[in-house]
Amino acid sequence: MVTLTIDGREVQAEEGTTILEAARESNIYIPTLCYHEEVTPYGACRLCLVEVARNGREKLVASCLYEVAEGLRVKTNSERIASNRKMIMELLLARCPNNKAIQDLARQLGVEKTSFKLEDKQCILCALCVRVCQEVVGVSAISLVNRGVDRQMATPFYEPSDVCIGCGACAYVCPTGAIGFEDVGDTRYIHWPNNKMEFKLRKCKTCGNYWAPEKQLDYIIKKANLSPDAFDNCPDCRD
């Protein structure tokens, strides 16, 4: 365990954890958009910037990536941090002016309007969907394509993915709701910002309800080495 100071408070944290994790443990709020405890930190949204003092110098670091250290002094809110966060929110608000999550966070950080020309996007390219698909689901059906301002989240060549199992984890972790997800009758629809896919749902042998994508169930059976009939019934109708 190491002891560090966050906003004047002494905090204990395990070695190897990040400032963000230590702060959350101690109920100290740091805004984030691209962080999720289940995937590798990425450091892209830059909202979690905090100031750390080391060797007499104060520098701005991404708290989701910076590891705690004995005696580290951290500020999670200073004028410098606030002005950087505000500019980042102005940039995100210009990109996604009609997105509720972005509007709310902007307001919370003191940004009412943006100085820049408005676009109309929903995706902020935080790559949470991509990381969850790769690290948690393990299929890498989606990725970030192109570079710089042309960057997009998509399946390879914008074509329907052979490996996507339709689990919807990408939609679940998306912080802005940019990925649409809907089950209608026997079909699941996933709408990504740049392409969409449909998945056939399996019918429960007992109640007859459509309950999960065939591909997802086959994937789990294969991966966990289950019996082929393991998912004949929906969770409600299982013994």
């Binding site: 892209a44 980042i88 995100l92 020309k117 570079r147 301002v149």
Partner: peptide, 21 residues
Amino acid sequence: LEGESCGKCVPCREGLKRMGQ
């Protein structure tokens, strides 16, 4: 630089685009 930014972080990707505009 806007063309060569990798696009990973918000300030560089979105900021340089706005600066260019």
